[in-house]
Amino acid sequence: MKSGQAEIVETSKAIQKSGLMSRRNAILEFILRIVAFFNTITSAILMATTNETLPFFAQFIRFHAEYSDLPALTFFVIANAVVSGYLILSLPLAFVHIVKSKTQNSRVLLIILDVAMLGLLTAGASSAAAIVYLAHKGNNNTNWFSICQQFNSFCERISGSLIGSFVAVFLLILLILLSAIALSRRH
């Protein structure tokens, strides 16, 4: 009789422990989403507000650089804005996972959407990185010359905005891993 009671107590403790663990995971997921949101929105704003005008100009030309001059950077801003919007909209669902740890369908939905957003964000960040690299180094084989010698502060700011975006990519990978672990855990 005693052994039976002990078994029940142990089982209930294990259930409590696993419940606590999944709640911790859900809280961590919620925090990561907020951090990723701030990263993406900051990157988008930083890139969108970047412009530089050179102090000298010709009779008809004024030397001015901004993100919209390069299509890859425009795509970067749009991608980051979309992902930050998604991250804000996904917060209520992440909160549901804190309250109800056994939800499954919503977790699968979040994984699918997270993967789609990871793809979009990585594409935006990588295409922008390729262009920023070209702006810094140029390419002698194709006569694409470096523009960062002229537009120095412009290049610094767009390079800075890339960092935030790549951090958000890493955070999205972590979010997918957390969701996968939560799905695979047996209750």
């Binding site: 890859a72 993967v115 990871l118 793809g119 990585t122 594409a123 935006g124 960040a125 990588s126 295409s127 922008a128 990185a129 390729a130 262009i131 990519v169 990978i173």
Partner: peptide, 13 residues
């Protein structure tokens, strides 16, 4: 997936 997307997007640019 991240590595593939990064390579494809950079090359596409």
């Amino acid at each position: 997936l991240t590595l593939t997307t990064a390579a494809a997007a950079a090359a596409a640019a």
